[in-house]
């Protein structure tokens, strides 16, 4: 008997004739909506991100390019192919290195870059979580990981209040990365220290 058949047989035997448990959705009495308005969402997200030691600024939609430029000026950085052109000041073009699934940068090349700029798919205010889903404006997972400085644009309409609202907007079959602040560890005496293997600096630009 194959391992598969044997294990599945053991499971069936172990469960015996007991009826399958009811679907728990009927029991779901936890919150599924935050009911927060845009101002409250932005305020909460900023508070939570700053708590993680991310640098956050909230800018009008028209000022995103300037904010991105301020963060990346003088740096050589990766940018995903689908990153909105209007968010990238032409003055940065020279040092912007394009990446896509079709034409991926080598890991060592990424390691040599100073930074990366991406957009984002969904952000969850209550937990200060930004989700990247590999769309063309966010790029391959490697580009937002290897460079030491991540500049991330969060369009205000992608902000939700709580975790269930976030997952409701996500397609789990896409490669998802949930980011809550710069990389950190609590492995030494359970005290949180920011900055380990992932980007040590996280800049968030919330575009209203």
């Amino acid at each position: 008997m194959s391992a598969r058949e044997e294990i599945l047989g053991r499971v069936r035997e172990a469960l015996g004739a007991e009826p399958a448990a009811v679907q728990p959705s009927a029991l779901a009495e936890y919150r599924t909506e935050s009911g927060l308005d845009e101002d409250a969402l932005v305020e909460l997200l900023v508070d939570r991100l700053e708590d993680y030691k991310a640098r956050v600024e909230v800018v009008p939609r028209g000022n995103v390019a300037a904010a991105v430029r301020a963060r990346l000026e003088g740096k050589e950085f990766a940018v995903p192919e689908g990153f909105p052109a209007e968010w990238l000041d032409p003055s940065l073009d020279e040092r912007a290195v394009r990446d896509s699934r079709e034409a991926p940068l080598a890991v060592v090349r990424l390691d040599g870059l100073d930074a990366v700029v991406t957009s984002s798919a969904v952000s969850i205010a209550e937990t200060g979580t930004i989700v990247l889903d590999g769309s063309p404006d966010q790029g391959r997972r490697a580009i937002s990981l290897v460079p030491d400085h991540h500049v991330c644009v969060v369009p205000v309409e992608t902000i939700v209040g709580i975790v269930p609202e976030g997952f409701a907007r996500l397609d789990t079959t896409r490669p998802l990365t949930l980011i809550s602040g710069p990389s950190a560890t609590s492995d030494i005496e359970l005290e949180r220290v920011e900055g380990v293997h992932g980007p040590r600096t996280l800049d968030v630009i919330i575009a209203r």
Binding site: Y52, T172, T173, R174, P175, I179, S180, P182, S183
Partner: peptide, 13 residues
Amino acid sequence: TGERMNPYTSLWT
């Protein structure tokens, strides 16, 4: 870890 959310979660299919 007693955090609102851990820094990174990866989901792949």
